[in-house]
Computed example of a mutant assay.
Amino acid sequence: MTDPMPGGRRRIDRVLGEGFLEGLADLPLQEVRERRREAEQEEADLSYVRRMLQGRSDILRAEIARRAGGSHVGGAGGDEELVRRLTEVLTDAPRGDQRQRSDHGLGRFLSVEPSRVDEHRREVEQVVADVGISDVTGASDEELRAALARVEDFEHRVSASRRRVQEAMDACTAEVARRYTEGQARVDDLLPER
């Protein structure tokens, strides 16, 4: 997931481009709705990528914590313990006496599913490959910390783009709401003709 490029052809480039919100009040209602849908789809995609990156970060943190706690992989029950811990990291279930994940349920309700899922998965896999963490148990402590820093940096960039996309989506939503509030649009216009 590269950063948005001014004048680029990708959806994120359009949504975050200078002209996306210009003259919003003068556009036909259908165009404002289309722009909102475009922003919503991009937000869904960025949220998907962000969750994947957070999962990779959780795996790295769990391995760093396991090593700091003196647990050893291998030997009797070692692989089973690692699988159990990684399962806890990647689910929303309570972990022992810990509370549920604090980030669960804090997102927006989206009416669209992520698009380009395979493309996004490949991007995240490339980040993971670039930092060399396909086998966390084989990496040194230093390699794990460096990989975590790089994955977190990438996740922060995705999150920053996501916030900007949400702002564009909110601006379009506010414009649609304004038109209904001021009587420039009617709910009846959305109903099929009989």
Rank of each mutant, 00 (worst) to 15 (best):
R108P: 15
T2D: 15
D45R: 03
D141N: 08
E125H: 08
R108C: 04
E40D: 11
Y180T: 00
G138H: 10
V127N: 07
S140K: 01
R35N: 02
P4D: 01
S140F: 11
R9A: 15
E142N: 07
F20Q: 03
E143S: 12
D170N: 08
G75W: 05
R164N: 10
L110N: 03
P94R: 01
G132K: 05
G55K: 03
A177D: 10
A160Q: 02
A139H: 04
G105A: 03
V187D: 03
E81S: 09
V136M: 09
D188G: 12
M5S: 09
A93L: 02
R178G: 02
Q98V: 05
A171V: 00
L86T: 04
V165K: 00
I64A: 03
S134C: 05
G74H: 01
R84E: 12
L46M: 07
G23V: 02
V151A: 06
R14M: 12
S47A: 14
Y180N: 00
H156E: 15
D118F: 12
D170M: 09
E31M: 10
S161P: 07
G17K: 00
M169L: 13
M169F: 15
L24R: 04
R50N: 12
R10A: 14
Q100F: 12
D3L: 15
R61I: 11
A76L: 13
A185S: 05
L60S: 01
V151C: 13
G23S: 03
V49E: 06
D3A: 11
M52D: 06
Q166V: 01
R162V: 05
V117H: 04
R116P: 13
S159W: 14
R33T: 09
R36A: 09
L21A: 05
